[in-house]
Simulated assay, not measured.
Amino acid sequence: MTPNPDQALMVNGIEIPAAAIAEEAQNHPADNPDAAWSEAARALAIRAVLLAEADRLSIEAPVIEDEKGRTLLPDDARIEALLDQEVTTPHADEATCRRYYEQHIDQFQSPALVEASHILFSAPQDEPGRYTKAELRAIDTIAELKEHPERFAALAESLSACPSGKQGGNLGQIGPGQTVDEFETFLFNLEAGQMCPVPVKTRFGVHVIKAGRKIAGETIPFEAIQPKIADYLEESSWRRAVSQYLKILIGKAEISGLEIEGSDGLLVQ
């Protein structure tokens, strides 16, 4: 349900003013005002429920600093203290981390690398005449290199619009995500020493690509990644526990003007 700005939002008999929701909505960018209003109302309702529980448990505001060294406001500090007191999660021990590591071993591979060289014929894609001319030049260059592959570096130096032309077209080692998708699709499917038999078209222009030495990815040792796995598992466990805790509190609260089931997102900012 989308909250109605004209309908009062009540939490345990206390009204959250529309003005407060409108101000909070600035922290919840959305595609439309209703969605922003809904998220803001939800955030303030959750906040009110947590503060009410902190009141019930007589939790005072400790001095807490955020990651930037700024002291939290009293209500924010009380919510942090409440969650710290009431939400407990297990420590991710070595056995738990190792089990996750073995079950998700594909996630812990260093990327494969390919030494790449290219010759770029620069042309904007929104100018078909120039782009076609660049493609034809690339086709002619590929034909010449099929006859004389030893000329690649010399042709790159004389023809390429890329600064790498001064190094014979050498781009160094390329890993996934380091260049545009079209370039990588062809590059990573070439054998070491193979030139792509067709021009490769990207938004930068048209490329003649040659693959060099290929370096296979390696599995990252468990010992090197264990701390990050532990942090991930403990963070995930904490978020699930907080979500469940919120659902319990919300189930006990009296809320009108908003349908709410708890939160899986960031709770304290």
Rank of each mutant, 00 (worst) to 15 (best):
N27A: 11
N27R: 14
H28S: 02
D31E: 15
N32M: 12
A35P: 07
A35K: 10
A40G: 01
A41Y: 00
A41N: 05
A41L: 06
A43E: 11
I46D: 04
I46A: 01
R47K: 10
A48S: 15
V49M: 02
V49Q: 00
V49K: 08
L50R: 08
L51N: 08
A54V: 00
A54G: 03
S58K: 11
I59H: 10
E60K: 05
I64G: 00
E65A: 06
E65I: 01
D66C: 09
D66W: 05
E67Q: 01
E67W: 08
K68S: 14
G69C: 07
G69Y: 01
L72F: 03
L73P: 11
R78L: 00
I79T: 05
I79G: 02
E80P: 01
E80I: 01
A81C: 02
L82G: 00
D84C: 03
Q85V: 02
T89I: 13
D93I: 06
E94C: 04
T96K: 14
T96Q: 05
R98P: 04
Y100E: 11
E102T: 07
H104M: 06
H104Y: 00
D106Q: 11
Q107M: 10
Q109K: 09
V114N: 05
S117A: 13
A123W: 02
A123H: 05
Q125P: 05
E127V: 12
R130T: 07
R130A: 12
R130L: 14
Y131M: 09
T132F: 14
K133H: 15
L136N: 15
R137L: 15
I139C: 06
I139L: 13
D140M: 10
T141W: 10
A143I: 04
E147M: 11
R151V: 08
A153H: 06
A153E: 12
L155G: 01
L155Y: 13
A156M: 01
A156Y: 09
A156P: 00
